[in-house]
Simulated scan of single mutants.
Amino acid sequence: MQDLTIRPITGLEELDLFNRHPYTLNHELADDLAAGRRHPSWMWMALRGDRLLARLAWWGRDKDDDPFLLDILDLEEGAVDVAVRLLRTAMAETLPAGGRPPEYLRFVPPDWRETDRRAVEDRMAVLESTGARLFVERLRLEWRPGTPIHEPSGRLSFRPVRDENELLDLMTEVLDGTLDAHSRDDLTHMSPREAAVRHYEDEIARYTSPRAWWRVATLPGGEPVGFVTPGRNDYNAIIGYIAVLPAHRGNGYIDDLLAEGTRILAAEHVPRIRAATDLGNTPMAQAFARAGYVNFERSINMTWPD
């Protein structure tokens, strides 16, 4: 039997080899490498001869020096031990010493427990061997052109977000009673304002679309009841952040907000609108379903302890 080789790819010329394991992100990897969101040194393989037994890759935001997410991990059936060696070797060579490894995120079929359970659980077992644990399962949602958009109810008015400080104030306020797992985790070790700033800087501020699309919903007297930040990331049009302020929850305003955000993006003739919410955030999941968003995938998010 040939020896096992564990190494990063040498460059774009090995992308076909790396992509022998099928995955929904494979078609994005060349562009990610060109844009600097990935680097060959972040993309590792376990090979026996020219047979790809396992692979992994990290992703980073533009100009990041270190990986932000581990979002690719694939292995042949029965190759869990090989994948564990691959992960341990790659983490030791790639990640800063002493820090918390980046979160793992994997897209899976919406019915993965019936159709893909073995593969998903094998990947989770590899990660668990290094101390990772399941953090949250999320719904990935998609609105498609031609899906009806709810007409305005007339209960709310919408205006652009005035400035960054107004949005941060609103983001801080909606963390009271949030059902979002990432936000709840942030609040265990930082203030609501710090959590809002972190979310803004890590995600919303990085949109490649006009900030003029962001909307605040108000009552007839001008009192804000919520906000929505439709935008574009590096891949899709998205409903980035949508929330109702605590004092106004339970009145169905989320439907008006979601329809407004969808309407803004649909007017740009986008091929799809993507969104996501935690599996356990039932009110938000139901709002997306009422708006015609389809649950086309889920994601498995795993983290390592501090």
Results as ranks from 00 to 15, higher is better:
D186I: 03
D64G: 00
V225R: 06
V136E: 03
V197W: 07
L141H: 00
A217E: 00
E77T: 12
P145T: 00
L139P: 02
R48P: 06
Y104S: 01
G292T: 08
L179F: 15
M302H: 06
D176F: 03
I149Q: 05
H182I: 15
V216Q: 06
T303A: 04
A237C: 03
P8W: 12
E103C: 04
R117A: 08
F158E: 05
V197G: 11
L75N: 02
G49P: 09
P305W: 08
E166C: 04
S299H: 04
A195E: 00
F68Y: 12
D255T: 15
G226I: 03
A243P: 02
E223S: 08
L175E: 03
S209V: 13
A57D: 10
R117S: 07
L127C: 03
P96I: 14
D32G: 05
M43G: 08
A275Y: 01
R249P: 11
D186Q: 11
S153K: 03
G252W: 10
P305D: 13
V120C: 01
P210C: 15
V244K: 04
V216P: 12
D62M: 01
A237V: 02
N19C: 13
T115N: 04
M171G: 13
Y23C: 08
D50A: 15
D64R: 00
L279Y: 07
R155W: 11
A97V: 12
L170V: 09
N295E: 11
A119K: 02
Y104W: 07
I273E: 06
R298S: 00
R100H: 04
T115S: 13
E151T: 04
A92W: 06
P192M: 09
G221S: 15
E166K: 00
P283C: 00
N251H: 14
E142Q: 08
E76P: 07
A217S: 01
D163C: 13
L56T: 09
W214F: 10
L141V: 04
D256N: 11
A291K: 01
A92M: 08
G221R: 06
L156W: 01
F18S: 04
P230N: 01
I254C: 06
G36L: 06
A34M: 09
A196L: 03
E137A: 05
D74F: 04
W58R: 00
A291Q: 14
D74L: 04
L139Q: 13
L87R: 15
F227R: 05
P67V: 10
V84E: 13
R51F: 14
A196T: 03
A125R: 11
R184D: 04
R133F: 15
F107G: 14
E14P: 07
T130E: 09
G222T: 02
D176K: 10
R159L: 12
R118Q: 15
R117I: 01
A291C: 10
A196I: 09
I204Y: 02
P160Y: 08
H39V: 07
G131N: 01
R290F: 09
